[in-house]
């Protein structure tokens, strides 16, 4: 009896303790108000408005008029739209494929303690400090067919008509994107590589593993979560690539590099057809969300395990 009562008393105490603990560690919902309001105002509300606009015809001047599914059926049969989704995916995948290996190598190298590492890293990170506009303008000049590098290296570039063909323009966009974004991802990998416990390398060295094996069997697996983070950033960035397209190719030649983000801009702010523009924007939101969800699911990012010392 006494044992029972003491047990229940301790249980009560425990419960009471837990309750007070909740009060201390979990702030009330009111604290979430500022962030929530901003999110609702600047993300959800515009999204809803865009959804409504996608069912209207609006030139931005007269009042919007509802036109039912017109924008959507038009979009469904629009070869430029179909092509733009395909182009968006090509640019995104090319971005991931080209940027990932380069930034892993750079990042892991930058995580070491070699001579001149700090100086060289600082130089490598310069593109990160430049605006996308400046980068695009500079590369446009460097790649000018008559006065840029192509005119000096005709054995490689031929007549230098890089922006005049679809494959050339896509290659330029991918290359400039790599030049611009590799530093940021290298920075992520540098942080990730620095966090790998040295004991793993020491153990591997004792077992006779060389630099390459250490890289393949310790560094790469340990960078798994960093890779997923970096890839999601690349995917989202790739899907919304806009500024480089605007300045380097203007979606051209013709519509050959008109990706979805640029097509949205063109419809809404060049042709003043905000209805179609909104519909494209919604498609982009849905596609980007689906892809991000798929990556999170497939990679196991949602149940990410700690990679702390000793695994």
């Amino acid at each position: 009896m006494s044992a029972l009562s003491s047990a229940s008393a301790s249980g009560r105490r425990l419960r009471a303790g837990r309750r007070s603990g909740v009060g201390v560690t979990r702030p009330g919902l009111v604290w979430a108000v500022p962030a929530t309001v901003f999110f609702l105002l600047f993300a959800i509300l515009p999204l809803v408005l865009v959804a409504v606009l996608s069912f209207t015809s609006w030139d931005g001047v007269s009042a919007p008029t509802f036109n039912g599914l017109d924008n959507w059926t038009k979009l469904l049969h629009d070869p430029v739209m179909t092509q733009s989704i395909w182009l968006t995916l090509v640019l995104t995948v090319a971005g991931v494929v080209v940027q990932t290996p380069v930034s892993i190598l750079l990042g892991v190298w930058a995580a070491g303690h070699q001579r001149n590492r700090a100086v060289l890293s600082a130089i490598f990170f310069v593109p990160l400090l430049l605006s996308a506009t400046a980068i695009s303008v500079v590369w446009r000049a460097i790649l000018d067919p008559n006065f840029g590098i192509p005119s000096e290296m005709t054995w490689l570039f031929g007549d230098g008509n890089l922006m005049g063909s679809q494959s050339g323009a896509i290659a330029v966009l991918t290359f400039v994107g790599m030049w611009q974004w590799t530093p940021m991802h290298a920075l992520l990998y540098q942080g990730g590589a620095r966090a790998i416990p040295q004991v793993l390398y020491q153990a591997a060295a004792i077992d006779g593993a060389g630099k390459v094996r250490q890289f393949l069997h310790i560094t790469l697996p340990q960078l798994r979560n960093t890779m997923i983070t970096s890839m999601i950033l690349m995917l989202v960035g790739g899907l919304t690539t806009f500024d480089t397209v605007l300045i380097l190719t203007q979606g051209g030649p013709g519509t050959d590099t008109t990706n979805s983000a640029y097509y949205m801009y063109q419809q809404a702010f060049k042709s003043f057809d905000f209805g179609s523009g909104s519909a494209i924007a919604l498609v982009l939101v849905v596609v980007a969300t689906l892809i991000s969800l798929a990556v999170v699911r497939l990679s196991g990012y949602d149940k990410m395990r700690s990679t702390s010392e000793g695994l």
Binding site: V137, R140, A141, L143, D144, P145, N146, F147, D159, G160, N161, L162, M163, G164, S165, G168, G252, P253
Partner: peptide, 23 residues
């Protein structure tokens, strides 16, 4: 017009330079 005119712009000074430099 040559073969690489789609890579040339007037707005960034490309085509005026072609004329001025005699290309």
């Amino acid at each position: 017009f040559g073969s690489n005119f789609d890579s040339v712009k007037f707005t960034d000074g490309g085509s005026p330079a072609l004329l001025a430099k005699g290309k």
